[in-house]
């Protein structure tokens, strides 16, 4: 039973058809769409690279790219530090470990929309509890509506809050596979806690760290609701990220060609970040296929 029979082709067909229809073909046609002037009430018209030239000359696009770059890096490395710290904490001794893990997992179940609800409530001017507390100790309020840097910081905090469970779980699972004998042997050799971490645990979980980083880089770039429901990209388009820029061009300005050019840039960027992982996976799969 080692040769593929027609029944087996039928079995892989549904998933492959869905992927082709919903993701692969649309992603390819995106390239075509990005070369057209395409808006409501007009026949699409081939314009070559005009859409790309437009976004390259658009200050809002550069602003969105810069914001995305900064926020994604803050989010990804913030989560890594927090997730790693939590994983080290929980993998050692903590009271009620199962309950602690459950509590740390909970934000994964929260929709971005509700996360925005929670944080906007705590950050209401004057009366939200965080701003009230800041005022009470004589500090400035957090004004996400007026100050772009603050708004991006709040969005980053929300993203970290929501996605740390992912990084935490991957690193926690990896730490649990570190052999106790190795740790004990290092201790017998006189290694302190930091040295055990640096030379034993860290080295063994590097692959898991890289996987967590890669997946979060790819997914953090999709940041949308946190910004859209917080500031809609304002004031004056100062807090837009790439997904918000794309959404506005397509569904507010109806410039689908410009949006497609933005989307194609995001797609190429995602694949470029994923390239080392994809190459490695491809090699391993070809090797295993023999």
């Amino acid at each position: 039973m080692h040769r593929l029979r027609p029944a087996h082709y039928l079995m892989i067909a549904p998933a492959q058809l869905m992927l082709a229809a919903v993701i692969v073909l649309p992603a390819i046609s995106l390239l075509w769409l990005s070369l057209e002037r395409y808006t409501y009430g007009r026949a699409p018209e081939f314009v070559g690279l005009a859409n790309y030239l437009f976004i390259l000359g658009d200050r809002a696009f550069w602003r969105a790219s810069f914001n995305t770059f900064v926020v994604v890096n803050i989010v990804v490395y913030g989560e890594l530090l927090l997730g790693l710290g939590l994983a080290l904490l929980v993998a050692g001794w903590v009271p009620f470990r199962r309950l602690v893990v459950s509590a740390l997992l909970a934000p994964y179940a929260i929709t971005e929309v509700s996360a925005v609800v929670m944080w906007r409530y705590m950050l209401e001017p004057d009366i939200g509890m965080i701003n009230y507390a800041l005022m009470a100790i004589g500090l400035d309020q957090i004004d996400y509506g007026g100050d772009p840097v603050t708004a991006l910081g709040v969005a980053a905090a929300m993203a970290i809050w929501m996605h740390t469970p992912f990084t935490f779980l991957i690193l926690y699972a990896a730490l649990l596979t570190v052999p106790v004998e190795l740790v004990e042997a290092a201790k017998v050799d006189g290694a302190g806690a930091w040295q055990v971490f640096r030379h034993v645990k860290f080295r063994l979980i590097v692959p898991a760290i890289l996987i967590a980083l890669l997946f979060r880089y790819i997914t953090a770039m999709r940041l949308f609701a946190e910004i859209w429901l917080l500031t809609e990209g304002g004031p004056a388009r100062m807090t837009e990220v790439l997904a918000v820029y794309l959404y506005r061009q397509a569904f507010k300005y109806h410039e689908f060609g410009v949006a497609a050019a933005t989307g194609f840039a995001m797609l190429v960027l995602s694949l470029a970040i994923a390239m080392p992982y994809l190459v490695q996976m491809y090699r391993r799969m070809v090797r295993d296929a023999v």
């Binding site: 993701i23 649309p26 992603a27 995106l30 769409l33 397509a250 689908f256 497609a260 995001m266 995602s270």
Partner: peptide, 12 residues
């Protein structure tokens, strides 16, 4: 396919 940003498929 898992690496592609879902937002881009909305346009086509």
């Amino acid at each position: 396919v898992r690496m592609l940003p879902p937002i881009v498929v909305t346009l086509p």
